[in-house]
Amino acid sequence: MFVVKIGGNILDSPERLQAFLVDFAQLPGPKLLVHGGGKIASAFGQRLGITPRMVEGRRITDAETLELVTMVYGGLVNKQVVAKLQALGCNAIGLTGADANIIPAHLRPVRTIDYGFAGDVEGPETINVQALEAFFQVGLTPVVAPLTHDTQGSMLNTNADTIASVLATALAQNHSVQLIYCFEKKGVLQNAEDEDSVIPHINAEKYQALKEDGVVNAGMVPKLDNAFAALQQGVQAVQICDAAAIKQLVEGNNAGTLITFS
């Protein structure tokens, strides 16, 4: 089973998104797609006079921003992706964490930073795997927006990389799962200015060194944190690559950055 997360500039580019979805639709067997959409939400927010606030790659979600991301992630982005997959013969169903109660979460506690209406998922054991399996059994491909719910009637903004990681680990109970993070870069870069400086392999020790040296920072930190969390909990492999490389990766060719413990 493939759990694929798509984000970054791919969602902003109709051409790149279409090319990715063509490849994704052709993946064999059951699959699940998680999408981001932060840049689109920021752009819409600015049109509405809502200035995005980010700390360490994560969005501060006040009440106004929660309304914004619910509309953009759960509505605009999610349904556009679903419609495009339907046109490609992939019978997709768009979901948030509230739908079928697939991802309950809790409000992130305030420590050094108040992230507002940000949701943290307890762990893979809280995921409604039974509902997801029911979708797979009838030939549906879930397309999941980065939104969860607090079981008390409120939506919560949740990092898409985290959602992909937790869903992958939950599904790993019953499947051999490969988690793939696709974005606009060829992988994790040694030099952000050099598109070809891909680091082919990162283990836990190297990750710490890359963070200390500042090579890995901002939004890449939660992505890699979630990659290692997935590996710890049963996911077979984690890859970070250019969305255009997903086909060659699935065919067994090297692409992007492979994440392992050792």
Rank of each mutant, 00 (worst) to 15 (best):
Y73N: 04
T158P: 03
S165T: 03
L85M: 10
G234T: 03
T70S: 15
V55T: 09
G234Y: 06
T257L: 01
Q86D: 14
S197V: 02
T141S: 06
G8S: 08
S154P: 01
P222W: 04
S176V: 14
I6G: 01
A230L: 05
N78K: 07
D196V: 02
N217I: 00
A63N: 09
N226C: 14
R16L: 15
T61C: 00
Y73C: 02
D150K: 08
V221M: 05
V166A: 08
E193H: 14
A118Y: 09
A63T: 12
G219C: 08
E195V: 11
Q18T: 13
I113D: 08
A87V: 10
C90V: 09
A170W: 07
V77C: 05
Y207G: 00
T51Q: 15
L140I: 02
Y115N: 03
A244P: 08
R59S: 07
G49T: 07
A25Q: 09
G116N: 05
V144Y: 05
Q152P: 01
E184P: 02
D194I: 06
H175T: 09
A204Q: 14
D62I: 10
A134P: 03
I50N: 10
L66Y: 09
A229C: 04
N191E: 11
I113N: 03
P124W: 12
Y73F: 15
E133F: 08
A105W: 01
D161G: 10
T126D: 01
A204C: 10
I180C: 13
F117W: 15
D213N: 11
N91V: 13
I103F: 02
K84R: 15
G139V: 05
